[in-house]
C-alpha cells in the first residue's frame, strides 16, 4: 500500500517536472537519425547469427548448467571452471567466445569461479613475470609465481548450421552443443543443446 501512495504522489510531481522541461531541453543530441534501441529486443534483420541468438543460447546453457549437481558442488567447494574455444562449424565469421564469455559471466554471478585461457592467459603470464622478473617491484608486495590454479572442469562444444535455400526462401538451422567435462577423467558430466531455426523470404 505504501508503494502505491508514494507513486500516486510521485506521478503528478513527475508530470509537472516533465511538462516544465518539455520543449526546452532534452538529454539527447542529434537529429534523430541515430537512436538507441533495446539491447534485448528480438533481432530479425538477417538470418545470420545475431544478438538474440547469442543471448538465447547463453541463457539456455546457463540455466541448464546451474541445475547440474556438479556446478552446485563446484560453487560450494570452489572448484574451478574454464572454457575451451567452442568450435565454429558454420560458414559465418562468428566469434564463439561471445557465447562462452556470457555463460561464464552469468555463472560467475551465481558464485562459480573460473580461470582464463587462450589470449587472456598470455596477459596473465606477462604480468606475473613482470612482477617477478623485471626487478622493478618490491619483493614483499609482488605476487608469487607458481600459485596459479588449474581448472577442474572445462566447457567445450561446437556450433553448426544447415542452410537451405530456394528461389523464394532461405532457411537456416543452428545447433549449439555444449559439454561440461571433468578435466582429470575426461568424463562428460553435462551436455545440452540449443536449436534455432530462422527463415527469410527472398
Amino acid at each position: 500500500m505504501t508503494k502505491i501512495t508514494s507513486t500516486r504522489l510521485l506521478l503528478p510531481a513527475l508530470l509537472a517536472l516533465s511538462l516544465g522541461a518539455c520543449q526546452t531541453t532534452s538529454p539527447a543530441i542529434g537529429d534523430g537519425s541515430v537512436a538507441y534501441g533495446d539491447s534485448k529486443a528480438v533481432e530479425t534483420v538477417t538470418t545470420d547469427l545475431g544478438s538474440t541468438d547469442i543471448q538465447m543460447i547463453a541463457e539456455k546453457m546457463t540455466q541448464s548448467l546451474l541445475q547440474t549437481p556438479e556446478i552446485q558442488t563446484a560453487i560450494k567447494k570452489r572448484h574451478l571452471l574454464m572454457a575451451s574455444p567452442v568450435k565454429n562449424k558454420t560458414s559465418e565469421y562468428f566469434d564463439t567466445r561471445m557465447i562462452t564469455d556470457t555463460i561464464l559471466t552469468q555463472l560467475q554471478k551465481n558464485g562459480v569461479k573460473y580461470v582464463i585461457e587462450g589470449e587472456d592467459m598470455q596477459n596473465q603470464v606477462d604480468e606475473l613475470s613482470r612482477q617477478n622478473q623485471s626487478g622493478l617491484y618490491k619483493k614483499s608486495k609482488s605476487v608469487k609465481m607458481g600459485n596459479m590454479q588449474g581448472a577442474k572442469y572445462r566447457l567445450d562444444g561446437s556450433i553448426s548450421s544447415i542452410i537451405k535455400k530456394n528461389s523464394s526462401m532461405k532457411d537456416v538451422y543452428y545447433k549449439m552443443n555444449l559439454r561440461l567435462i571433468e578435466i582429470e577423467s575426461g568424463i562428460v558430466e553435462w551436455s545440452d543443446e540449443k536449436e534455432i531455426r530462422k527463415s527469410a523470404k527472398r
Binding site: D38, K40, V42, T52, Q55, M56, E59, N110
Partner: peptide, 27 residues
C-alpha cells in the same frame, strides 16, 4: 535479482497449447 532477459520469440500454432519452461538464472 537478474539483468533484463532477452525477448524470446515463440510461434504458437493455431489452437495449440504451448508449454514454456524456464529456470531462474540465479539462486
Amino acid at each position: 535479482v537478474w539483468e533484463e532477459e532477452p525477448w524470446k520469440p515463440e510461434v504458437v500454432y493455431g489452437l495449440q497449447k504451448k508449454m514454456i519452461n524456464a529456470v531462474s538464472p540465479s539462486f
